[in-house]
């Protein structure tokens, strides 16, 4: 195994700073293998030590490069391989993991190298627990959030173009998304409602508050999947959305770990609940112990009058 090297596999996306930063944390030499357009490969040239480019994909989907990426990586057997959690990123990592017969670990927050072994700190089971896991006897393969655009100030690494043949598949059409749905991930303020809500028509009570705050409406799992009062893409929790807004309001939400892992990154958390012993009150910054049917309209009114 080549202990000095960390490889990143890049699936046609210039947002790869998360991959580069993590690779640098455990490798003296960072090698990028890029399945995608030349501009993606070029964007990495100042941030990594070597760039291996598999050529213009033309109409081939990035996933068609899985076997080619796997062959290149397997030949080098680096200590660490890092890719993105995007569909294309996971496909490339899947091919690499299959070739090396090693697991793909996700939810990774840190890597520590120790000889041939790498210790991975990661969240498991959708974030309800954290593990420190040692990968022993083989390459450590991890999937992480791709981060933002790569900012490099190093010397420009030359593009090393490799001639490979992708699997047969052709992208025949791309229809840009018309209007995006709920953008919970990008919202500064999110108002979440849970089982404290008694009827579907009462959703208006909460959406009025969300409107007064200029925020997005969200919910805990039972409202999206148990009773279907709000669409699934607005559900926050371990198998739903994970968000980090400036302000999150948990209304009628008891504060089960399974919901709260989805909002842990929020700067300020407010809870409104009638049960003063609800676990949410030990996980928030401000709390109101009271009936949400009285407190929520009062809040909407207080915001509206600017008092």
């Amino acid at each position: 195994m080549n202990s000095a090297q960390s490889w990143i596999v890049v699936a046609d996306d210039t947002a790869a700073s998360g991959l580069v930063d993590l690779a640098r944390s455990v490798g003296d030499e960072v090698v990028a293998v890029v399945a995608g357009r030349r501009e993606v490969a070029s964007s990495l040239a100042s941030a990594v030590d070597r760039v291996l480019w598999l050529g213009e994909p033309d109409q081939a989907p990035v996933e068609a490069y899985g076997p080619a990426v796997a062959a290149v990586v397997a030949q080098a057997t680096p200590r660490t391989v890092i890719g993105a959690t995007s569909p294309g990123g996971r496909a490339l990592l899947g091919a690499v993991a299959a070739a090396l017969r090693v697991p793909v670990l996700a939810g990774v927050s840190a890597l520590e190298a120790d000889g041939d072994q790498v210790v991975v700190t990661r969240s498991v089971l959708g974030g309800i627990a954290e593990h420190r896991t040692a990968v022993q006897g083989g390459t450590t393969v991890v999937a992480v959030d791709p981060g933002g655009a790569v900012a490099g100030d190093g010397d420009l690494a030359p593009l090393e173009e490799l001639a490979v043949t992708p699997l047969a598949a052709t992208v025949t059409e791309v229809r840009p998304a018309a209007v995006a749905g709920a953008d919970l991930g990008g919202a500064r303020t999110v108002v979440g409602v849970g089982r404290g809500l008694k009827a579907r028509e009462d959703v208006a009570l909460v959406s009025d508050l969300a409107a007064a705050l200029g925020g997005e409406l969200a919910c805990s799992r039972p409202l999206a999947e148990g009773v279907d009062w709000l669409p699934k893409e607005r559900y926050i929790g371990i198998s739903g959305q994970h968000i980090a807004p400036d302000l999150y309001l948990a209304l009628g939400i008891s504060g089960q770990l399974q919901h709260m892992v989805g909002v842990r990154g929020a700067k300020v958390i407010v809870a409104v609940n009638s049960d003063k012993n609800a676990p949410v009150f030990s996980q928030c910054d401000f709390g109101v112990v009271g009936d949400m049917y009285e407190v929520v309209p009062a809040l909407t009114a207080a915001l509206g009058t600017g008092s």
Binding site: E130, G138, D285
Partner: peptide, 30 residues
């Protein structure tokens, strides 16, 4: 056979969940 094995060195409940709340009494909603 697998090419690598995983060994769990430690487990933890995720940090950052605990916050100290300022609590207001909602018996007067306004």
């Amino acid at each position: 056979a697998p090419g690598a094995t995983l060994a769990t060195l430690a487990t933890a409940k995720p940090a950052g969940g605990e916050r100290t709340a300022t609590i207001f009494d909602g018996s007067s909603p306004a």
